[in-house]
Amino acid sequence: MSLFSPSAAVPVVPAERSPGYWSLVLRRLSRDKVAMIAFVVILALVLMAIFAPYIAPADPYKSSMLRRLRPIGTPGYPLGADELGRDMLSRLIHGARLSLMMGILPVFIAFGIGSVIGVAAGYIGGRFNALTMRTVDVFYAFPSVLLAIALSGALGAGIFSGLLSLTIVFIPPIARIAESVTTQVRKIDYVEAARASGASGFTIVRVHVLGNVLGPIFVYATSLISVSMILASGLSFLGLGVKPPEPEWGLMLNTLRNAIYVQPWVAALPGLMIFITSIAFNLLSDGLRSAMDIKA
């Protein structure tokens, strides 16, 4: 008889893994009703953009001189027809593609570039930091609307110049946040300890710095998406950004502006879409911020 018979052993309980930070954040977020509604709205908008050709009842480009500016509820035109007799519902659905892309993509690219600039400046410090951050300050010194319009005004209309201008607008604020978070983290003892134990700069940044700074930078970046949506559509509204006849909410608002005396509520529809998208991103970002327990 072995002393250690299996039956006598304490039942083996697999060590319960403590839930990680991210699963905690997700759990908190899923309890936030407002944030969840915002998430569902965004998901619906994204699905609408992806499957636009299958959902839209009509061709968004097909115009009809006979059916210009029809009111909401016209048979065959559930949300009316625009100034060229195109089906509004189909154009709004297709519009989600360019509008979402123009609003979200610049923030993501700027998140990548701005984080690299900010983390490098914060980690390396010294002269490099001063030089980089003063350059960033120059661009930060412009009000964002003005800088976006100045750049795309000089570059001329077009999807690419719109994306480029917006990306340049969002790099400085992200880089500033990244720099300030990195500078704080760099002073914490475990980074000092890692350095003392001989870890290379690259390893320290990858393991100790990025893990701690990417979260706050990301939350900040998500709060910019709403601004970016409004700005991107604003550029198209001014005749910069997306060019006709592409369906894009800001551009649709622009071309329908003269129709407010004929079909006011049809003309206002594209703006409502921008509003819904922008508020959903704002609420989701707020929820994410409190779920991650980030102040500031």
Partner: peptide, 10 residues
């Protein structure tokens, strides 16, 4: 902070 102000104007 979320409303596109140019649309609100319209």
């Amino acid at each position: 902070v979320s409303v596109p102000h140019y649309w609100l104007g319209m």
